[in-house]
Design a protein around this nucleic acid. Structure first.
Lengths: 219, 219
DNA sequence: ATAATATGTTAGACTATTCTAACAAATTTG
DNA sequence: CAAATTTGTTAGAATAGTCTAACATATTAT
């Protein structure tokens, strides 16, 4: 059984994997807030339990076994977030830290019950997909709002960043998942967008914000 | 902030404290399943953070600070057990292991919400008192069923042991908290008791069982 | 009260996870 | 393409928590 530390490495590797499933030691170290030698030595030890493939000076890759373990931890994280929001009255901006701890609990029934009580959800409160109990994660192909054109009508479906600060910003603008918005114009200078939604008739969103908002184009 | 390991030592010390609040190193070690030198060295380190008082070859004592920390961990454990039973459909025999992990989660709001959703319970599913959020635990003075007399009518209010095996035994006899039972007779030879309750008109309980059942005498 | 037993301590070692300093390889750039 | 920069590795050390073996103190029982 992987330790909490190992689980965190697996999760980071899963999230950092590029299209070829590769992760550099430096990215891994940075993402976990540890030094490169630390990441390096942990990667070597994950290799001994067949969770990653690794060769000196090459990027790291998760094995299928490592991918599955990682996805199952992410499943526990996202189920927990959903449970906290839907069943315990937490705001979507408050759940990350708690879920970060609860994802390491070893108690299959606990998460199965959450799953049942939530009606087997497929996305978490931030629109991210919840892997199934075999560790399979469905791929969504959402568009960043930043690459939409003036005149389009879109529905906010997910976020690429779920930091507390960003979520609090969205709260302050009454932006939540499911909301439909119309793109009124784009400022060529700074790529900010002017949009309207609900009772916000004219709201300006910086590029930094709009590239973190994932949408489905509905018109 | 105390580590998970330290929290487990505090909890054990709290539970093992005798009337003078003292615990021997050997008991502590045994209770945690570690060697005596391990317990000894941890006690020394707990002393550095003012959680225990300790002198060579003397028993260990929790400081008021240590007592409060311990009680607050026990509070999280028992709130969790109650939540699992009342809100997530767990049986009272399945909650201990999970609660043992969740008690170490650092997330005040998580436990406050449990507490609210449960209506500020004062006992857990096994009848043990839940310390308040200041770490104060109320004392109940229940009687072990084993020291009751034939003819008495009692209500089952708590257990002195909550092992899965014992709880499963109680389940098999349909014994649950709140049940009223009449003591029909006591066997002088092995101190077993014959009792009746609900639709069990004549059930024999060994001394081993009856001394683990705490009751309130109601007639 | 002394021997036998139980309890507690010290010393030294091991694993997991982390670090810094120094060095090596790979990549980028003028 | 060679120099500069970035990235990765090795070596060595630190801390937390654990162990066993050996020794010391306390307690119990004759």
């Amino acid at each position: 059984m992987a330790s909490t530390t190992e689980e965190n490495y697996l999760k980071a590797l899963y999230n950092l994997s590029n299209s070829q499933g590769e992760v550099n030691i430096s990215e891994l170290a940075q993402s976990l807030g540890v030094s490169m030698p630390t990441a390096n030595s942990m990667v070597k030890s994950l290799q001994k339990t067949d969770l990653v493939v690794y060769e000196k000076y090459k990027p790291v890759t998760l094995t299928p076994k490592g991918q599955k373990e990682a996805a199952l931890i992410i499943r526990k994280h996202r189920l927990t977030e959903m449970f906290l929001v839907k069943k315990m009255g937490f705001g979507w901006e408050e759940v990350h830290e708690v879920a970060e701890q609860i994802e390491h609990i070893h108690a299959p029934k606990f998460f199965e019950r959450m799953d049942e009580m939530l009606g087997h959800p497929t996305i978490d409160p931030h629109g991210s997909p919840i892997p199934d109990n075999q560790g399979r994660m469905q791929e969504f192909s959402y568009t960043p709002l930043s690459s939409c054109k003036a005149g389009q009508i879109v529905q906010l479906t997910a976020l690429t960043n779920s930091s507390t600060e960003f979520l609090e910003f969205l709260n302050s603008r009454k932006l939540s998942l499911g909301i439909e918005m119309k793109i009124l114009s784009r400022e060529a200078y700074d790529l900010s967008l002017v949009v309207s939604y609900a009772d916000h008739l004219q709201e300006t969103l910086s590029e930094k914000v709009s590239e973190r908002l994932l949408v489905r184009i509905i018109g």
